[in-house]
Structures are given as structure tokens and as C-alpha cells.
Design a protein around this nucleic acid. Structure first.
Lengths: 209, 209
DNA sequence: AAGCGACTAGGGGTTTCTACCGATCCCCGA
DNA sequence: TCGGGGATCGGTAGAAACCCCTAGTCGCTT
């Protein structure tokens, strides 16, 4: 299945993928939560997921999918080449990571690889990945790592300009819960205004500027 | 011809477009200057250009192409739905503007339109365009120019996380005045939440992320 | 002189945010 | 088994944001 908030991209990707014998798109999603639901109902072999999606980031979506015990393999397709995103995605359980600067052929290779149970990372980023693993000694964590997945989710929605009520509706919880998440994550980040969260979210790559 | 820094996107777009009889991709570019050169050597009817390109932005490239007297029509294809980018692109001489959230079919419509000498803008953004023209007074270039100096000042302070009261104190005016400025600039920008102002301010370079 | 736009200021209203307090449920690790 | 933390809700209440209105002064243009 395909998950990307850009319908146009989904359309052309679907055409491209379905040209291949043996590959078929069984579902699409334009948004994180939609993706998680679709995975449960359609049970695709592979989910091609854009890292940047409104509401729920691709990495958090990947986390939910893999932790739900689903057999669906998550293949991240994104424009972000920096290893922060790569590491987040892989740590969240993604089986593949393909950057959009790569030739399209690579996407097919990646689909092939992850559907067989292997892992695939675009050569251009795997190079950085090796260096980062080598340079690391355990400490490596972003500011956002102190947040729970749910809090990151809420933070992303706040940064997108949604109110507590809108977040509650989107997540299917009560307003008080959304407010509780917001209050906790703001306390953790030492911030007293939602508008400052936006800047942090942009700086951390949680949303686009 | 196609210009996008993501090879994968170019690949699938080319496949999609070349499926149509009568459409053929004669050249590709992954970067702004490459695009400008390729237009001069290949003289395509239409250049599909991503707004986001290293080196030379799509809008600047469009400006160079149209001002060089070339007959090539520039069709912007981008993820940016905000009118800032739309206005920049159109002012730079682009004949079309299609957002990636639109269905792929729309790209073909746009190619058809601009190759006939017409203009095409995705319905979802043309809506904003009308509002902006209404709020505008003619001279304006960037988004910030529709704002008065005082409004820009207030906007910057909002983006830095100050409340209306703090802004009032800093500027030496009453809270009501600060609120009035804020309300007017938000109306001009078509924004209903201060948190969204932060993103615009960062994007426009008014504050740092 | 008249009109317009920017800047200033205020009244009065609803909604949302922010910060407290409390609670239950469930999962996971010690 | 017992704790702890995460997620879920509820109440209260002040602060701030947001909305709609009027209105004065100033400077510039028509």
C-alpha cells in the first residue's frame, strides 16, 4: 500500500509500481492514522510510507504498525537524507528507507528486499549511517526522545496549528486527554506557549516550515 | 521537460506523462541552472519545474526562462499550497501551478492548458489566490509587503513567542492596540491561529527557527 | 478640503489555553 | 505481586486569545 499526503505523487507511484508484474497497490492513505487503519484492514505485504505526513509522522506510524504485531513491512520513502530521520525510522521498526533523490528503480529493489524479509537502505544514506553508528556510544538522542510517541503525535498536531479540540477529534479522545498530553509535553520541553512548540517542532524536523 | 531534484519523482513522472499520446519528455534537470540551459538547447513546449531546487529556486529559474524570450511555458509542480509561493511563481512568469496534493490527472490538464497558451492554477490554491488579491493593494511583492511596518514588527514578536500583553509593553502601547495589530495582520495572511504565524515567520526569514 | 490608510484605544463577548486538582485502567518490569 | 509510567477522563479557574464593533489622531494623496 501507499501512504503519502500528496495525491499526485501517490497517483504516479501507483502507476509506476503496478506496471511491474506481481506488484499491486491494495490501499492508499494520505495521512498517518488512515495508514495505520488501512494496514490493519488490508494487511499489505509492504507499506510505502512518506516520512512526513500530517497528524502522525511516518516514523510514529511505523512504530504503531510494527508494534501491533502486523506482518506488514514498512518502507520509508522520503526526501530527508539526514541520518536523524533515518535512525528514527529504523528505530521505529521500518524495514526500508529510500530517498527521493534516488532513481525510481531503487524503489522496486527496496520493495523486493523488504517483502522478502530483508532490509533496504538507499546507498547514499547507508553510507552516513555507518559513520553515525561508528561515532556513537549510546548517548545519541534528540530533544524529542524524552517524549512518548503519543506526545510526539500531539506535538506535531499542535505545530500544525490544531487546537486541543481538533486534536481530540482527530485522535478520537476527549479534549481533556489532548490537553493532558499537551501539558505534559510542554512541561517536558520547558515551554509555556504553544507558539514556541512550533519553532521546536520545525527545528527538530517534526513538521515542515 | 522535467526539472526536479528528486530522481525518483522524475522517473515516475516521466513514465506517467509519456503514457499519454502526444506527450514526450525531451530533457530532464535536477537543478536550476541545468534547467535554464536545457530549456535553451532543447526548447521544450512546457517545462515542469519543482519549486524547490538546489542552487536556483524554481521561481528564479522561471524568471530567467521567461525573460530570455524563450517560448517555453513554465509549469510549477510543488508541495507548497500557500499563496506566498504561488504569487512568487506567477510573478516570475510561470504559466501554471499544480500542487502535489492534487490528483495526477490535474497535471495532464495543466500541461494541456499551458501548452495552448492558457494559464492553470490548482483549484485548491486559486481559492487562496483570490483572497490575497482582494487583500492586496497592487505594489506588494512578498507576503510581508502586504503588511505595514508595524504589523511586521508585531508579527515578529508573536513569532518569538510573546503574548499580546508583552508586545504591548515592549512597544509602549496598550494591549488593545497590540491585539488590533495582531488581528489585522492575521486577517491579511488568512490565518486564524498565532501558532501558524510562527511557521510563516520562519519561512519568510522574519525569525530564526 | 475630503478621503484614505496607519496607528492608536476601548467595550464586550466567546473560545481556547494553561495550570492546578483529582481519578481509573493497563502494561511492563522488578 | 507490586510499583511505576503511560494513556485516559473529569472539574475548576484565571489568563490569554480571538471576534466584532466604534472611534480618535495623524499624515498623505486626490
Amino acid at each position: 500500500m501507499l501512504a503519502d499526503d500528496h495525491a499526485l505523487v501517490r497517483d504516479v507511484l501507483r502507476k509506476y509500481i503496478e506496471e511491474r508484474p506481481g506488484l499491486r497497490i491494495v490501499a492508499e492513505a494520505s495521512e498517518g492514522r488512515e495508514l495505520v487503519e488501512a494496514v490493519q484492514t488490508h494487511r499489505p505485504d509492504v507499506a510505502i510510507v512518506d516520512l512526513w505526513m500530517p497528524g502522525l509522522s511516518g516514523a510514529d506510524a511505523a512504530r504503531q504498525i510494527t508494534q501491533s504485531g502486523s506482518s506488514t513491512r514498512v518502507l520509508i520513502l522520503t526526501m530527508h537524507e539526514d541520518l536523524v530521520h533515518v535512525r528514527d525510522a529504523l528505530r521505529a521498526g521500518a524495514a526500508g528507507y529510500v530517498v527521493k533523490t534516488a532513481p525510481a528503480r531503487q524503489l522496486l529493489d527496496a520493495i523486493e528486499a523488504v517483502s522478502r524479509g530483508n532490509f533496504y537502505v538507499s546507498p547514499s544514506v547507508s553510507h552516513h549511517l555507518v559513520q553515525s553508528v561508528r561515532a556513537e556510544d549510546g548517548a545519541g538522542s534528540t530533544l524529542l526522545s524524552v517524549l512518548t510517541p503519543r506526545e510526539r503525535e500531539v506535538m506535531q498536531l499542535i505545530a500544525e496549528g490544531l487546537s486541543a479540540k481538533e486534536i481530540a477529534t482527530k485522535l478520537g479522545v476527549s479534549i481533556k486527554t489532548a490537553e493532558a498530553h499537551r501539558a505534559r509535553l510542554m512541561a517536558k520541553l520547558g515551554v509555556r506557549k504553544a507558539s514556541l512548540l512550533v519553532r521546536i517542532a520545525i527545528r527538530e524536523g517534526l513538521v515542515e516550515s
